[in-house]
Design a protein around this nucleic acid. Structure first.
Length: 817
RNA sequence: GCGCAGGUGGUGGAACGGUAGACACGCAACGUUGAGGUCGUUGUGCCUUCGGGUGUGGGGGUUCAAAUCCCCCUCUGCGCACCA
């Protein structure tokens, strides 16, 4: 019988659909596994990265299903977002039609790959039902103070005409279209993620066993916690009067209080309130104001290129020495970190050093290495060391003095130990159409008012014109008009929509909702309790910060809102590597893509899945290789063809091992080795490539013998091992010969590992010189006699100083002379 | 600059201190074939005077034994980056 992939795959895909083979049970007493892969954006067609992502999660899902677990393996679409609008502008399509057409197409692709998703839980985040529950959460979060509206300087992408979160600005440019970001002053909604900075950082320890270290580190760096001293710098009298007594002081933060005696100037961000006051009140000359304005309008990338500054003509008093210190503006001081002002110690900070050199400011060294003198004539000395020229702290090391200096500031009540974070609140409003509307209303009398929950969802209007200019909701003639839920007077809806990362921050909770729950609630507490946390989360490393941080944040918020009672959503995270071709990431612009549909048409889904899981371990990059794909196809064909050696049976054949020939014994051993490797791979290593290699070895060994029972037993087990990888072929074989009974937990047989004789490597001084075959029960002395005979020529005339026998592995003889 | 990951045949990759290169791709030879492909068998790290030598980015160390552990260097990829 010939292997015709299309016939077999179609047959089983229909069978799985008709039999609802992959729907999870609602029996919450069963052992569960929640296997989740990051859901896709409905871009139109699957790419190889998708195939890899879902091949990995599907293998996990199918394995655990075979093991008798109640498996939830859902799929959905992250379907709001700008590409739908961009397509609308380009082709005149409607974002909704475009999106749902793409979803239909991609769903077919998924099922043609044989992925074992729960069909009943399919959803898209642009579904009105999804929006309904999400809007209710927004209202809850607002009421809890976790969502707020504020005017501020925002990241604005001039190309996409929308605001971006800090996380979405990459190297000063838009993460989507690479356009340089400009700052724009406007109203924006924020999630108060900074309330959770400490917990998001601390709880990384709760998931460190299940997450890649790289991701943990990236999140840690992103949150960016640093401890230090915050204190006020008081203006001298002259400066106070210059400022019309409006300002007494300003606040600075330092992580190096040990260098405080080295302060030779201070610097404000160009956006600092004192600078703004001086500009507004004409306390600076025209030329200076023009320079500051230019500084403020320079993009963040350009601002990093060269240090610029200006003296303000103000002085503050050093809190410890009492000396006056000049106040400057410096472009490297960031308004949104700390207080937007710094104390500058050029002798011990690289940035301060460059700036001092440029503007000829004093460089006063106060820290030196333990054993030598310090030299700051060429560059700053930024290491920790020993203090000098530091009054009562002379002679202390950096660490000790930091503690003492902070303590002294606290005792004198002129400063305090302070923690700063790089993490900022998450700006979530977008001035776009294709997103979830923010369910808030602006009333002239009542101000910002929440929509009533019974009126949700606030759905998008379909009749919009999308031309890329301004917000279609803002320009819609009627949609935004409404009545105030509080006073009933005319009011207008918020026309901003939510960042699409909001939808992906809780979709994994929505998947827990059973078909019965779907309409009634986002999910029930029982469902969440049973299915969460996600046992295996599979996705790309590119989400290491954005999505994974936001999802962790939402989980903690939902916990505090009382919807659930755990801290972290994803127990284990598997970040798959990229799919490359010719050494570069597959992309349309590079023209090096391989279309999954074409591979399925030519070789079948099983071949695509086998190649992808065999070519590299899942966490590594995967280089596409056409002839290796061909190789995967040939293996499946061989696997299928040789199944003709099997005799149909409904239970695994019982074999009397001792009566078998050497080849037959070896075949059984290889089969059971493959089984043990498979169990190990699924338990912790996920190196499917080695599991498949084990099956190939077993196949090679089976082919070297002709015992029908050994063939049947071998296929009983190998088809079970391979089912998560090549499900169609495995079900076809298992159905034909085993009535599918072998797709179940497999037990090992210890007798196959018992050997009559074993081969040991023999090395002399660690170098391999030969091998000996000895009886399995041979004593150490017997082994040594044989080993010495084997390598006699190497031992001749030498003194044997040590003999090491590693059981079942090797013998090492150490000689001298 | 800081952090993380990594460097093994012609290629993808095995080897969780114990016979380096499993398994596969590629290549070569032979068989099958009118030819090509498929399929099957065999070989394949490098050098070699066929004794052997050498070999996991480079150098050192620990060990009876190191791709694996430790130190230094180097290169590559990824992330963060004027964060005070």
């Amino acid at each position: 019988m010939e292997y015709i992939s299309s016939d077999i795959e179609k047959k089983w895909q229909e069978y799985w659909k008709e039999n609802e083979s992959f729907e999870p049970s609602e029996d919450f007493t069963l052992d569960k596994k929640y296997i989740l892969s990051m859901f896709p954006f409905p871009s139109g067609r699957l790419h190889m990265g998708h195939v890899r992502n879902y091949s990995i999660s599907d293998a996990l899902a199918r394995y655990h299903r075979q093991q008798g677990k109640n498996v939830l393996h859902p799929i959905g679409f992250d379907s709001f977002g700008m590409p739908a609008e961009n397509a609308a502008i380009k082709n005149g399509s409607h974002p909704k039609g475009w999106t749902y057409d793409n979803i239909d197409y991609m769903k077919n692709e998924f099922y043609s790959l044989g992925f074992s998703f729960s069909r009943k839980r399919e959803m898209a985040t642009s579904d009105e039902l999804y929006t309904k529950f999400e809007q209710a959460f927004m209202i809850d979060m607002y009421n809890k103070g976790l969502l707020y509206r504020e005017k501020g300087m925002l990241n604005w992408c001039p190309h996409d005409q929308t605001v971006l979160a800090n996380e979405q600005v990459v190297d000063g440019c838009c993460w989507r279209c690479d356009t340089p970001i400009v700052k724009k002053d406007m109203n924006q909604y924020y999630f108060k993620i900074t309330d959770y900075s400490d917990e998001l950082l601390a709880d990384l320890s709760k998931i460190e066993d299940g997450w890649p270290k790289q991701v943990l580190t990236m999140q840690e760096n992103w949150i960016g916690k640093s401890n230090g001293l915050a204190f006020d710098l008081l203006f001298d009298d002259d400066s106070k009067s210059k400022l019309n007594a409006e300002f007494e002081s300003f606040d600075v933060f330092t992580t190096r209080p040990d260098t405080i005696y080295g302060v030779s100037y201070t610097a404000l961000a160009p956006e600092h309130a004192i600078v703004t006051y001086m500009i507004d009140n004409k306390l600076l000359d025209e030329d200076t104001i023009a320079k500051i304005t230019k500084m403020k309008n320079t993009s963040s990338i350009d601002r990093q290129k060269v240090k610029e500054g200006l003296a303000l003509g103000l002085n503050v008093i050093h809190p410890l020495t009492g000396k006056t210190v000049p106040v400057w503006i410096a472009n490297f001081v960031l308004m949104d970190y700390g207080s937007g002002a710094v104390m500058a110690v050029p002798a011990h900070d690289d940035r301060d050093y460059d700036f001092a050199k440029k503007y000829d400011l004093p460089i006063n060294a106060v820290i030196k290495p333990k054993d030598t003198d310090v030299d700051v004539s060429e560059k700053a000395f930024t290491d920790a060391g020993v203090l000098f020229n530091s009054g009562e702290f002379d002679g202390l090391n950096s660490k000790k003095s930091q503690y003492n200096i902070i303590k002294m500031f606290e005792e004198k009540k002129i400063g305090a130990k302070t923690t700063n974070y790089k993490l900022k609140d998450w700006g979530v409003s977008r001035q776009r159409y294709w997103g979830a509307p923010i369910p808030f209303i602006h009333c002239k009398d009542c101000g910002l008012v929440m929509e009533k929950k019974e009126n949700l969802p606030i759905a998008l209007p379909d009749d919009v014109e999308i031309n890329g200019e301004g917000s279609p909701l803002e320009n819609h003639p009627t949609w935004k008009n409404c009545k105030c839920p509080e006073c009933g007077k005319d009011a207008v809806r918020e026309t901003d929509t939510m960042d699409t990362f909001v939808q992906s921050s809780w979709y994994f909770l929505r998947f827990c909702a059973s078909p019965e729950t779907l309409e009634k609630a986002a999910f029930t507490p029982e469902e969440i309790k049973y299915w969460m946390g996600v046992d295996h989360y599979v996705g790309g490393i590119e989400h290491a910060i954005l999505h994974l941080l936001y999802a962790r944040f939402f989980t903690k918020v939902f916990r505090d809102l009382g919807y659930l009672d755990f801290d972290e959503p994803f127990d284990k995270l598997l970040t798959q590597g990229m799919v490359l071709k010719d050494g570069a990431k597959m992309s349309k612009s590079k023209g090096n893509t391989v279309d999954p549909d074409a591979i399925i048409a030519k070789y079948g889904a099983d071949t695509a899945r086998l190649f992808i899981l065999f070519a590299a371990p899942p966490t590594q990059e995967l280089e596409w290789n056409d002839s290796a794909v061909e190789g995967a196809y040939k293996f499946i064909k061989r696997f299928f063809d040789r199944s003709s050696n099997v005799v149909a049976t409904e239970s695994k054949p019982v074999i009397e091992h001792s009566t078998l020939s050497k080849e037959e014994k070896l075949a059984r051993k290889k089969v059971y080795e493959a089984l043990e490797r498979a169990n190990d791979v699924f338990a912790e290593r996920y190196t499917f490539n080695t599991m498949i290699a084990g099956v190939m070895e077993a196949m090679n060994a089976l082919n070297s013998q002709s015992n029908t029972d050994v063939w049947s037993e071998g296929y009983w087990i190998l088809a079970s091992i391979m089912e998560p990888v090549i499900p169609h072929t495995a079900w076809e074989i298992s159905d034909k010969y085993f009535n599918l009974k072998n797709l179940s937990p497999q037990t090992t047989v210890s007798e196959v590992f018992v050997e009559d004789s074993i081969t040991l490597g023999v090395s002399v001084n660690g170098k391999r010189r030969g091998e000996v075959e000895v009886d399995a029960n041979a004593s150490k002395d017997e082994i040594l006699v044989a080993a010495k005979a084997e390598v006699a020529k190497w031992l001749e005339g030498k003194e044997l100083v040590k003999e090491i026998v590693v059981p079942k592995k090797l013998v090492n003889l150490v000689i001298k002379g």
